[in-house]
């Protein structure tokens, strides 16, 4: 393991993504990606009394699924990295409290999934852990309640707003076995271009994604064409468009390789999700459900996965602060 360039870590014995799992909510189950997920729920409450309990159950069951799919006994998993959007990450810590695996709570807003994979892969490569579990979740209803308005309020969502994905994605990393490798990680810097509109998260996070992707290319000496696909977390339609154009203005053409999980998750015309999906679970479920399988089947051999996050809360929005964005990238190859 060594640092290359300004902020990229290159692995000598790359950690392996052994298994992934994903569970999504009802709206996601009606979207174009539905067939790739392990489980599609029909009820946002999933038999629980509160949105928060439902979200905890979703992450708990996703983790149980990934453990049983991998065949690795949970007592052999050394560490768990997990996080979500609710205050003090209660979905993860409440959902995983019965797991009996040493736990690191991670907060990177919607970038949490890749952030945990960055940390987990360093633990694996350093020899500190044999198996690491990474998980994240989000829930439309608990997120609306915490960040916006009660669900029953008769307000209109502006066309720039994004729809928080209900679901959870989890992965297990190890150093022996089969599967795609994490060859490089490029943790991102906090980038704030002064966007204050909490209904336009894609625009707030796109500059962070731009910064991290360009830094990744500079540090590794790679060109966009090295990759079969570059996938960002949840920039949505507007953010995707912005990132494409800004990459172009900096001399990188990624248009043909690039897509965004927020764009992939929903059918914009049929599902009325405005600018697309967002939330920790957006990239978490789509990577776990779709891209992991594509990598396994070798239809994609080199993937740059860039998770973006908006590091704000409802207090900072009310105080009129701008929204700092962050993006973490991992290079996954097979």
């Amino acid at each position: 393991m060594k640092k290359v360039g300004k902020q990229t870590i290159s692995f000598d014995a790359p950690p392996i993504i052994l298994e992934t799992a994903s569970i999504v909510g009802p709206k996601e189950s009606e979207g174009p990606m539905a067939k790739y997920f392990d489980q599609c729920l029909t009820d946002e409450f999933w038999g629980e009394k509160t949105w928060e309990k439902a979200e905890s159950k979703i992450i708990k069951e996703t983790v149980n699924t990934v453990i049983s799919k991998s065949g690795i006994p949970s007592k052999d998993i050394d560490f768990c990295f997990a996080g979500d959007l609710l205050n003090q990450c209660i979905s993860s810590s409440f959902g995983l409290r019965a797991l009996n695996i040493p736990f690191f709570g991670v907060f990177g807003a919607c970038s949490t999934f890749v952030e945990s994979m960055c940390l987990g892969s360093v633990f694996i490569e350093s020899g500190a852990a044999k198996y690491v579990l990474c998980a994240t979740s989000s829930h439309f209803c608990s997120a609306e309640k915490q960040f916006r308005f009660p669900l029953e309020l008769g307000n209109q969502r502006p066309p720039t707003s994004q729809w928080t994905v209900t679901g959870s994605g989890a992965s297990i990393l190890g150093h022996v076995g089969e599967g795609p490798y994490i060859t490089h990680i490029t943790p991102g810097k906090i980038v704030d271009m002064g966007i204050k509109d909490a209904n336009n998260m894609g625009a707030a996070m796109a500059p962070a994604a731009l910064d991290t992707i360009i830094q990744h290319f500079e540090d590794t000496g790679r060109k966009p064409s090295y990759y079969d696909a570059i996938i960002s977390g949840d920039l949505g339609h507007i953010g995707k468009d912005i990132l494409n154009e800004m990459m172009q203005s900096k001399g990188y053409n990624i248009k043909s390789l690039y897509n965004d999980c927020g764009v992939l998750m929903f059918d914009k015309n049929k599902q009325d999700t405005h600018s697309g999906g967002s939330g920790c679970a957006c990239i978490g479920t789509i990577f776990s459900g779709y891209f992991f399988k594509e990598l396994k089947e070798k239809r994609i051999r080199r993937l740059l996965l860039v998770a973006t996050g908006a590091l704000m809360n409802s207090t900072s929005t009310q105080q009129g602060e701008s929204i700092p964005g962050i993006a973490h990238a991992i290079s996954i190859e097979i």
Partner: peptide, 23 residues
């Protein structure tokens, strides 16, 4: 497109990229 350097430029650019509500 010219590279965007300042917050003001970015803010103007985002305003242009963001669709208006169907008023």
């Amino acid at each position: 497109m010219k590279p965007i350097e300042t917050k003001q430029e970015y803010s103007d650019y985002v305003d242009k990229k963001s669709p208006d509500s169907p008023i």
